[in-house]
Amino acid sequence: MMQLIWNGLIVGSFYALVALGYSMVYGIIKLLNFAHGDIYMLGAFVGFFTLSAFGISNETSIPLLLVVLLLSMVTTGLIGVGIERIAYRPLRRSPRLAVLITAIGVSFTLEYGVRQIFGPNPEAFPIRLESSGFDVLGMRVTASQIVLVVIAAVLMLVLAHIVERTRQGRAMRAIALDPTGAQLMGVNVDRVIAMVFFIGSALAGAAGVMAGAYYGSIDFLMGFIIGLKAFTAAVIGGIGNLYGAMLGGVLLGMLESFGSAWFGGEWRDVFAFGFLILFLTLKPTGLLGARVVERM
């Protein structure tokens, strides 16, 4: 029982990190960034590439993980900004369908670009976390799991600080509320949106590296399912709401953990998407989402 909660928490913190990027981008420009899950995959591959370039394999050091994490975050952040600049900004005034289709195109480009570079087979992630652990409250906990959860929590706290306490964060909230109004008040909308993409992609990249270290293997399609799951998490929490995304991620992690324990692991994804459809039907605004008035 406690074990299920703990496992759910770890998976949930990955979901939450990815869901945050989804939720921020959606909150600010009402775009479902389908490529977001692939940024997570890119994060893992950037980490893999750097470590392999230095000839490191089967490492267990946690400081090294942190260094790779930071490097990956910066790289994926910049990639995210580049994607926004090339593929999304020119279409900001087009019909919604056009941008959605572009996002699918970007997702495909990233997935199969990585496939062409690294090959279709899964790669072993060079940093492996040791599996020795200890028992607390009847659940098996390893030190590295705690590190992962702590990293995720710290990243989320930093994000919450940026959004709620800084000038840039205020600009983000202003744009989410009313882009034109924010622009009239002197907010540089393009720059703030680029920054949102940077932060969101960096978080996804961090999640990718952590997932690589946690699961030990990465492949070019690993972002697809987690993108879907993260979206589900964002919807459960209330899309556009940061705490909602965190709560939704953890909740979805737990739901899956219990769902696979009760119904069998092969039904795990069905369970998650079933929840997505259920939530959209019964409470489309999510747990913490405010009622959104549709602007025409």
Partner: peptide
């Protein structure tokens, strides 16, 4: 889902496709 915004539909159909396959 059709009562919702069109981008929700996109992701729900994506999930539905996976549900059917799984």
């Amino acid at each position: 889902t059709l009562r919702l915004r069109s981008d929700y539909l996109a992701i729900v159909t994506l999930g539905f496709g996976e549900i059917i396959r799984i």
